[in-house]
């Protein structure tokens, strides 16, 4: 159900109470949410930094395709995968 909600026109953003943090102690980016934190790899950080509630899903994918010089379909699959996970965890809004 959440998978269909995410369309090209969606404007994904982290919900209030969900925050990116550059953790100086663990030397990694983390995503802070109620009662949990997730360690993020560089790609996830790149994705989430672009999810500002202004940029549409399609332009987030475009932008990352340019940055990584990779196949757009592959990038889209990765971005969608992360965002759907966060939607299901109630960490992301559209």
């Amino acid at each position: 159900m959440t998978t269909e909600q995410l369309t090209d026109a969606s404007r994904p953003h982290l919900l209030r109470g969900v925050k990116l943090k550059n953790d100086q102690v663990r030397k990694t980016w983390v995503l802070l949410a109620p009662e949990r934190y997730l360690r993020l790899n560089a790609i996830s950080v790149d994705i989430l930094q672009r999810c500002d509630g202004v940029a549409a899903f399609s332009s987030v994918v475009d932008d990352l395709t340019k940055k990584y010089g990779a196949d757009r379909a592959l990038i889209e699959r990765d971005v969608r995968g992360l965002l759907v996970t966060l939607l299901e965890k109630r960490m992301l809004g559209l």
Partner: peptide, 8 residues
């Protein structure tokens, strides 16, 4: 309630 509320 999947996607609506997370149950721990």
């Amino acid at each position: 309630y999947k996607g609506q509320i997370v149950v721990d």
